[in-house]
Design a binder for these strands. Structure first.
Length: 579
DNA sequence: ATGGCTATCCATGTTTACCAGCTGGTAAA
């Protein structure tokens, strides 16, 4: 049993215990254990074999025993007993935003509702709004959240799919005579969500690679298997297609299967006007009728008289016209990134110390790191009171002095309250190097209120960056209702940067926002929002969004050196206000 | 249920906002 599955069991148990109104500290213990297991860098099976389960903080006698039972029998008696006390599907109700344990239990007890379908029906029939302390507005809210949940399609976030593809590629890559293994499709274009994983490659003996692929340990089901192509379902329900192709036409095949469809259609239209016919196997001039093959995409695009178009740009957004004029952007790369603008530490809800984060940043070759823990308003995240903030600043300063190979900035991720005021008084902001403001509450405000609220925060001279501007969580929470164009204009006017949050379930701003923001001259930062040292590696997802938004290094503040950055920080409006 | 110090014990995340009913329960972050 994998860690993720075990963590899920404890998460479910915590939910069920909450429905039972069991000891809240016990519930919290399960939640903590679940969270810890999710973030564990090693498999619990190995830890158990070494007899070291109890050494993990938050795992004591009882939970260690439960983990052992799960790992050895694949089942957990206590879990099954708990589940039998509630109807199947009650967890489904808890997954709907706006429904907590109290409401879930009441819906079941008073209306017999135990799944989302019944709930939707009951709301439409007006049964829910009639219950004590549940009115029209609440019912309407819940209905909206149900619709969000329904709209979430089968696509999975890139951040979950990419590691799966990379693991497979690394496993198959060790086979002799295998070359060019790469993800194609939307994954290669770094789209924020992925349908199926499509992997391509060439090999001296394609069939042996296909066979090895179908036998990989993570494969749960083989849907189809031929000499050059196979489709399988892997562990977490993802479909993976492997396609082994001819080396001679690898370039045009990769191009074809990378898409997007819109890009390829536009490319084909243009080629037709040049008297060329495109197929996945190559280019055929109508005049000669002879197929020309391409081993590389560069040669393929070159034959069409086009500059090489990076996959992230292949979305049918004028990239072909730009390539024609040799006018494609020189896209920002991960290697251009010199620092991270948004990380958490154990001072709020992060797992690692300031020093551990600093070391990880230095190991990535960064010049600087902005520590931006939560402000007091985010109580659940153990947000910093002004007093603790000052202690943390002192510690950051001391550490910064001690570490001579990385520059640490004292930052904060400060709450923007419902009225647009910030979580600390203005004079406290002056003590902080980098103020990152963000909305974390009252997300249901209408556009006028929300836009005004955020602009008020942007206009605060102490604020440098607006984090995750639309607050969306892919497949979980819709973006806030906000006039994003107004936000962009306010950001330019106030010289405030907007963040591209690199967390795979956020990617916020998203690609088309970045495209527009860049056009308007908005300064952009990429922040990983890392809650552990490992998560600094999420930077590549943020860079992917920036690339899809046609950003060059100069559009992204993270590419600036520490000297230039200091200049930006001093240059912002806060200086103007002091004068 | 866990972990730490006072141990066969005791403390353990908090603030903000919304909504239903006119102060406080509930949920989200």
């Amino acid at each position: 049993m994998k860690n993720a599955a075990i963590a899920q069991v404890f998460r479910d148990m915590a939910d069920l215990l909450e429905l039972k109104e069991d000891n809240p500290f016990k519930i919290r213990a399960y939640q903590r254990a679940s969270h810890t297991i999710d973030d564990l860098p090693v498999e619990l099976e190995q830890v158990m074999d070494e007899g070291r389960l109890r050494e993990i903080h938050g795992i004591g006698e009882a939970i260690a025993r439960k983990i052992t039972e799960l790992l050895t029998t694949g089942r957990l008696e206590a879990y099954e007993k708990l589940r039998s006390e509630f109807p199947e599907g009650i967890n489904e109700l808890l997954a709907v935003q706006g429904i907590g344990p109290k409401t879930a239990v009441r819906l079941y007890n008073e209306l017999g509702i135990s799944n989302v379908d019944d709930l939707e029906k009951a709301i439409r029939d007006g049964q829910v709004a009639g219950l004590y302390r549940l009115g029209e507005k609440t019912a309407e809210n819940i209905l909206r959240h149900i619709q969000t949940l329904r709209r979430k399609d089968a696509r999975v976030p890139l951040g979950r799919a990419l590691p799966v593809a990379e693991e497979i590629i690394s496993e198959l890559g060790s086979i002799a005579g295998v070359h060019n293994l790469t993800p194609a499709g939307s994954m290669r274009r770094f789209k924020e969500t992925i349908g199926d994983i499509d992997i391509m490659g060439t090999a001296d003996d394609p069939e042996s690679v296909i066979k090895a692929f179908a036998r990989l340990p993570q494969v749960e089901e083989v849907l189809a298997k031929g000499a050059t192509k196979a489709s399988v379902i892997v562990g977490d329900g993802l479909q993976v297609d492997l396609r082994m192709v001819e080396h001679d036409s690898y370039g045009s095949l990769l191009q074809h299967f990378t898409g997007s469809k819109e890009h390829n259609v536009a490319l084909r239209d243009r080629a037709v006007r040049q008297g060329l016919s495109l197929s996945e196997y190559g280019i055929t001039p109508v005049r000669t009728g002879k197929l020309e093959k391409f081993t590389s995409e560069e040669a393929f695009y070159g034959r069409l008289g086009l500059q090489y178009i990076p996959p992230e740009l292949r979305e049918g957004r004028n990239e072909i016209e730009a390539a024609e004029k040799n006018d494609l952007p020189d896209l920002v790369e991960v290697s251009d990134i010199k620092g991270d603008f948004h990380v958490h530490t154990e001072w709020s809800d992060g797992h690692d110390s300031i020093e551990a984060m600093a070391n990880a940043a230095r190991d990535r070759g960064y010049q600087y790191l902005v520590i931006a823990d939560h402000s007091a308003g985010r109580g659940i995240a153990h947000g910093l009171s002004v007093e603790r903030l000052r202690q943390q600043i002192a510690e950051i300063r001391a550490l910064d002095k001690r570490l001579d190979d990385i520059r640490l900035f004292a930052g904060i991720e400060i709450d923007i309250r419902a009225d647009g005021t910030l979580d600390y008084p203005d004079e406290v902001l002056q003590e902080i190097d980098v103020v990152v403001a963000a909305v974390h509450s009252a997300m249901g405000q209408d556009s006028e209120k929300m836009t005004g609220r955020i602009i008020r925060a942007l206009e605060n001279p102490g604020v440098h960056i607006l984090a995750h501007p639309t607050c969306r969580l892919i497949g979980v929470r819709e973006p806030i209702d906000v006039d994003i164009e107004e936000i962009f204009r306010a950001a330019v006017r106030t010289n405030t940067a907007l963040e591209i949050n690199a967390m795979p379930d956020r990617l916020d701003l998203k690609d088309i926002h970045v495209l527009r923001a860049r056009e308007l001259g908005v300064k952009l930062t990429i922040g990983t929002d890392a809650h552990s040292a490992d998560s600094l590696g999420l930077m590549r997802f943020g860079v992917g969004v920036a690339r899809r938004g046609w950003c060059q290094p100069e559009h992204i503040l993270n590419t600036r050196s520490v000297e230039e950055l200091g200049k930006f920080l001093r240059q912002t409006h806060r200086e103007g206000v002091r004068n």
